[in-house]
Amino acid sequence: MTVRIGHTTTSGTFSLDGKTILVDNNAWIVGDEHECVVIDAPHDGSAILDVVSGRQVLAILLTHGHDDHLGAVGSLWDATGAQIFLHPADRMLWDRVYPGVAPDAHLVDGKTLTVGGEDLHVLHTPGHTPGSVCFYLPSANAVFTGDTLIRGGAGSTGGSFSDSGALARSIQDRLLTLPPDTTVYPGHGDTTTITAESAPGRAATSA
């Protein structure tokens, strides 16, 4: 494996359905010594750029369209010029933060992106939002799950545009079928594994 996984946690707010809460978000930076992709762009672009450390950013990949996962997109784009990828089913959420400005490219199920010579596979995993996706990196036994799967169970489905049934199916059919030793890198909180989240009752739990 030629790529490494970098990380930063940033703090800010999440707003939906007239409510605003404080949250800590993970941003994951995947690449080699020359190039990388950024998975989610929460709150503080400068903290993410510190981990990028001067490498070429090939793309900013968004796991979904909630504002706490894309608030730093503008500053990262200004700094890097990297293309911004979002699943089109979450465009209505994007438009709440960046009205009149479109993402550069669509994420679709089965799409493969390459960074540092390694393939990153797009898995459409609707439920937390209609356009939620995960990114599977087989060479590192890693999957980046956004808010679809976090340590201890499924992501939340209490807000607008969420679907608990769809989320359960996405986790069961797209994530728990990955190799058991796959490390899960979520949008919030600590890493976990597919083995741990396959335990009875875990993935059915709404966080």
Rank of each mutant, 00 (worst) to 15 (best):
D104H: 14
S132H: 11
R151L: 03
P88N: 12
L76T: 04
S162G: 04
V51R: 01
A140P: 08
H66N: 13
L58R: 15
V57T: 12
G71S: 13
V133H: 02
A105I: 03
A154E: 07
V73Y: 09
K19L: 07
A59E: 09
I29R: 02
V37T: 07
F85N: 08
G152P: 01
Q56A: 08
H64T: 06
V143M: 09
A207N: 07
V30R: 15
H121Q: 13
L176R: 06
G201R: 06
L167C: 03
F144Q: 07
T193I: 05
R55Y: 05
D44F: 03
L86E: 07
Q172L: 11
C134F: 09
T114L: 09
S162H: 05
P179W: 02
Q56S: 08
T112R: 12
N26R: 04
T191C: 13
I171M: 10
E33H: 07
A82W: 11
W77K: 15
E118G: 07
V52E: 10
H43N: 02
W77M: 10
D67A: 00
T193P: 15
D40N: 11
Q56E: 14
G158C: 08
T125K: 14
D173R: 15
F135Q: 14
G159F: 15
A207P: 01
I171T: 06
T80H: 13
S132Q: 03
D50Y: 00
A199E: 14
M92A: 12
R202C: 06
S53P: 02
S132T: 15
A47V: 02
V23T: 09
C134G: 10
H106F: 06
I39Q: 03
P88K: 14
N26Y: 00
D17R: 02
V133C: 07
P186F: 14
A203E: 04
D32F: 14
T8R: 05
D163I: 05
D147I: 01
S156W: 11
D40Q: 13
S162N: 06
G152K: 09
G110D: 11
P42I: 00
N26L: 01
T63G: 11
T182G: 07
L178I: 14
T205N: 10
D68S: 08
G12P: 03
G12E: 02
D95R: 12
S162W: 07
A89L: 15
R55H: 04
